[in-house]
Design a protein around this nucleic acid. Structure first.
Lengths: 233, 233
DNA sequence: CGTTATGATGACATTTTTGTGACAGCGGTA
DNA sequence: TACCGCTGTCACAAAAATGTCATCATAACG
């Protein structure tokens, strides 16, 4: 299960888009529908990309305006942007960096360079999770060292169980269906059997051994993580 | 209150120096005396700067030679360098990065861009170069003499392994993804496969032989250096 | 009770991730 | 020139995690 990243391409030249798409898909990235020239200033997508490749020159609305608007909008401000500029436009790169683009690439560029820079930008913005440790009833999860302890003794579990526990700790006292758990913990667009959730719940329970009272089964509905003991309904 | 960083400016144009000084001081950095054209090849300072801004073109001795010498000298090898290049020299940027400069900026640049890049470089190299020797459990790193010993017997390792260990020693008990390690240890603008990290982790582990328990693999996440933590999560 | 629906559990093949040895390129040096 | 150390990448081995299934246990309900 590779952690797939999605890239949004905004360019009005179909040839460039195709080239980008091929390069990106070879590197295991998923491309979102590239906005064409006319709608470039009103991109509507129903999925949040991990990164935006934005051409500097867009007819109607210039790429830099678009970038500025994206960076202003709360919803999109945190998405890193890489600007594509023609060589003659290179002077603009400073302006591009100033308004918040995370990198720029001058055309023509090699696919390899593109992917390399893209990786660098993604990696730079990736590790920005200075989350606070969570502790309840002796169960402590510290995302900084990626360690779960129960009464100070470390617990061992797989990555999926870790994510599952992480989700539960931040969403306590509420019942989630298997489908919802798949959405939140596995990620939206994966196809796995709902029963798989049962197995991982089992594995997480085993990892928590003595404290498996935390995870409650709600028959016919799903699972709930809670410190309080709640009667099922 | 702010942890003051000192920047050494090496440029023969007084106008540039003044501009840099103003920009840097506005951003709360402290500037060291800029070497002028004549002494550029024999910088003598009595304070160790946190970063060096180095002009590519220096009369008498070219900036790149100076950079190379700085990177060779044990005392200064660990100080990050940002090269300033004129636009026409941009082809040289690759060469600059190759000899060990941590970033480059092409003139003309905005003060804002300068500070942004400078911050990025400082952030990456932060804590990477302790001035005091560090010792834990018989493992001792002496940054001044650039020597690592284990129970008083010297260990041999390559430069990359040394930097990796140096980073780990100053950032213990915390998981870093391969990408983050590339960012901090290799530098932000190198394009290297993430698996390369694995290989260097292996080489470092081999160099530490008996104490390879320090470097822990956190499956699905990255690596962690720690004396105490044992179980993964 | 008996029947049925739903969850728990152990086993297992497959996939993913990491460890490891080898190798070619590069720059420095004898 | 030949040699040497370091580096990044690769191919393959090893290890761990994952998803699915068959089967068992239990709750719900008549």
């Amino acid at each position: 299960m590779s952690q797939e990243k999605t890239i949004l391409i905004v360019d009005d030249e179909a040839a460039i888009r195709d080239m980008l798409r091929i390069a990106l898909e070879m590197a295991d990235y998923r491309c979102l529908e590239a906005a064409d020239s006319q709608q470039a200033h009103t991109i509507i997508i129903d999925e949040r990309p991990n990164l935006i490749l934005l051409d500097w020159m867009l007819p109607g609305s210039s790429g830099i305006d678009l970038a500025r608007r994206l960076k202003k909008d709360e919803l999109t401000a945190s998405i890193p942007i890489i600007m594509l500029t023609a060589k003659s436009e290179e002077d603009n790169k400073i302006q591009g960096l100033e308004i918040g683009a995370d990198d720029y690439i001058t055309k023509p560029f090699s696919p390899r360079e593109l992917v390399a820079r893209l990786k660098a930008v993604l990696r730079r913005t990736e590790g920005l999770t200075p989350l606070e440790p969570i502790e309840i009833e002796g169960l402590r999860m510290d995302p900084i060292n990626h360690v779960v302890t129960l009464d100070d003794s470390p617990l061992q579990m797989g990555p999926t169980e870790y994510r599952l526990l992480s989700f539960f700790l931040t969403h306590q006292d509420r019942v989630y269906t298997r489908g919802q758990l798949l959405d939140h913990v596995w990620g939206g667009n994966v196809y796995v059997e709902e029963r798989t959730v049962d197995v991982h719940i089992r594995r997480l329970r085993k990892a928590l051994t003595t404290h498996d009272r935390f995870i409650q089964t709600v028959r016919g509905a799903g699972y709930r993580f809670s410190v309080k003991l709640v009667a099922n309904a």
